[in-house]
């Protein structure tokens, strides 16, 4: 089973929920940090990294001797990463999505694919929980291919928990796609609700069942709860704005360790998801 933890707004508690769910399920779970631009599950989980490998995207390199200036490469590229202009073929590697169409279509076989470094995948363990994270190269702007690589490490025999980036754009959709269930983490404020609505709309288009966790449930207003009721979104859990949780978080201690009574709550949530997934 694949469970993605997402949110519209940043800082609502995705990582808190994802890491505690993984720890509560123990050896039955695997956690994959898909927020490759700022992976932070490792701060709470302190995994032992046992393996890592670089991830590259194949981008075109043109042999000007062989090139006959036919321009087929530029016609097929949807991102203007390669273009015939005047008497030269120019490439813009940072625009390339790595589809390979230009090199396949080149009648002169003048286009070779060369690697552009996107980032690294790191794997290891937190006690008996499998841990995977992607880390993007500083300066790199294209995260979806790296997120897809993180997802190739999903262990189908486990409950794979994906910690998604915030928002509702390509990196979020790339993470959430093909999940069996999405946990939306929000806070009961106008800001939380605004961004929750945007994210829910995006996930609805993917047709994946969702549930909501309201973090710091005793602050703000009741509008988020009303929204969930109106939308028929199940309220999976409410986490209070408790001093013990905040103190633990500030020291890098996961929620289920600073409040062990939450272990059962997370296990119950997992059971609910198992019965209501795709």
């Amino acid at each position: 089973m694949i469970v993605a933890v997402a949110s519209g707004k940043g800082g609502t508690g995705k990582t808190t929920v994802a890491t505690s769910l993984a720890l509560a399920l123990g050896s039955r779970s695997q956690i994959l940090d898909c927020d490759v631009e700022e992976p932070n599950c490792h701060i709470l989980l302190k995994p032992e990294i046992t393996d890592s490998y670089p991830v590259n995207l194949p981008v075109p390199s043109v042999d000007k001797e062989k090139c006959s200036l036919c321009g087929k490469c530029g016609e097929v590229c949807q991102f203007s990463a390669i273009v015939l202009i005047g008497q030269t073929v120019l490439t813009f590697p940072e625009l390339c999505h790595g589809c390979g169409a230009c090199s396949i279509l080149c009648p002169e076989r003048a286009i070779q694919e060369v690697p552009r470094r996107l980032g690294v995948i790191e794997m290891g363990f937190v006690k008996d929980v499998e841990f995977v994270q992607g880390r993007i190269r500083i300066g790199e702007a294209m995260s979806p291919p790296l997120i897809r690589e993180v997802k190739t490490r999903i262990n189908r025999d486990k409950v794979a928990i994906l910690d998604a980036p915030p928002g509702a754009s390509c990196p979020v959709i790339t993470t959430v796609k093909n999940s069996d269930f999405v946990i939306m983490v929000t806070e009961p404020t106008p800001f939380g609700l605004n961004d929750l609505e945007i994210a829910v709309e995006a996930i609805e288009d993917l047709g994946i069942p969702m549930g909501v966790v309201i973090n710091r449930c005793d602050i703000g207003d009741s509008d988020s709860k009303d929204y969930c009721a109106r939308k028929g979104l199940p309220l999976l859990m409410e986490i209070p704005n408790h001093r013990k949780i905040a103190e633990g978080y500030a020291r890098g201690v996961p929620l289920v360790e600073s409040m062990p009574e939450y272990v059962d709550k997370f296990r119950n949530m997992s059971d609910y998801i198992l019965n209501n997934k795709h």
């Binding site: 991102f79 203007s80 273009v83 202009i85 120019l90 625009l95």
Partner: peptide
């Protein structure tokens, strides 16, 4: 266009 508008416009001009 999402990105690459300048490159395509440059091609059209060239």
């Amino acid at each position: 266009a999402f990105r690459g508008a300048g490159i395509q416009a440059a091609k059209a001009v060239a």
